[in-house]
């Protein structure tokens, strides 16, 4: 089992539409089978193997349960990347929003040097709401129409769909970063801040 990809762990095809209730049922069954709690009497090597399998099942479930993490994983799998290295796409601004992003970045730079006046605060706050709506749309598109496109694509069409998925992931990453930066400038706590925010890996 340790060599399997997350889809095959649950006996699923490499498709993005997943019945989450059924996924949960299979997860509970596998968790029961492989949890270290039920292998306490096993010798250490066996227990270590059970632990590794259990970890795989847990990670696989966590990844596939979430529609965005699922897409992210599929892209990685299709590109043959085994570790999480470079998993998240580099944040990229959507071309349609470039002008607005430029203004926001300017306001953010100003915010770093001094306090925000009331009018700027109100404007940034409104822009953040707009970006949040945009992010929601982007995530819905990833989870629904783009996912469906992947599931229905013939082998020859897949590279194009994969590129579209990556593009959408990059846009999403960008929107999240800007929303977080706005929250910080406005002095508000953005609870999801750390999720999915990866930094370049340090090499020794």
């Amino acid at each position: 089992m340790l060599k399997q990809d997350y889809f095959s762990v649950f006996g699923l095809p490499r498709k993005l539409a997943i019945d989450t209730a059924e996924l949960q049922r299979r997860f509970y069954a596998l968790a029961r089978e492989h949890h270290p709690d039920f292998h306490q009497a096993a010798p250490p090597e066996e227990l270590a193997r059970v632990e590794a399998t259990s970890a795989l099942v847990n990670t696989a479930y966590r990844t596939l349960r979430d529609p965005i993490a699922r897409v992210d994983y599929l892209v990685r799998l299709e590109e043959g990347r085994t570790t999480r290295e470079g998993a998240a796409e580099k944040p990229k601004a959507p071309p349609a929003l470039l002008q607005e992003m430029f203004e926001i970045q300017e306001a953010l730079a100003e915010a770093k040097t001094g306090a925000l006046d009331a009018a700027t605060r109100a404007r940034l706050s409104a822009q953040r709401e707009g970006l949040r709506a945009r992010l929601k749309d982007e995530e819905a598109r990833l989870g629904a129409s783009l996912s469906a496109r992947w599931d229905g694509a013939a082998p020859a069409e897949r590279p194009a769909v994969l590129a579209a998925l990556k593009e959408a992931l990059a846009t999403r990453a960008y929107l999240r970063t800007v929303i977080d930066d706005l929250a910080e400038a406005l002095g508000e706590d953005e609870p999801s801040r750390r999720e999915d925010k990866r930094v370049a890996h340090h090499r020794h």
Binding site: E51, S54, A55, N58, T59, Y61, R62, T83, R84, H201
Partner: peptide, 9 residues
């Protein structure tokens, strides 16, 4: 994250 869990680098 549900435990046991692992990450490879």
């Amino acid at each position: 994250t549900t435990i046991p869990t692992s990450a490879r680098e």
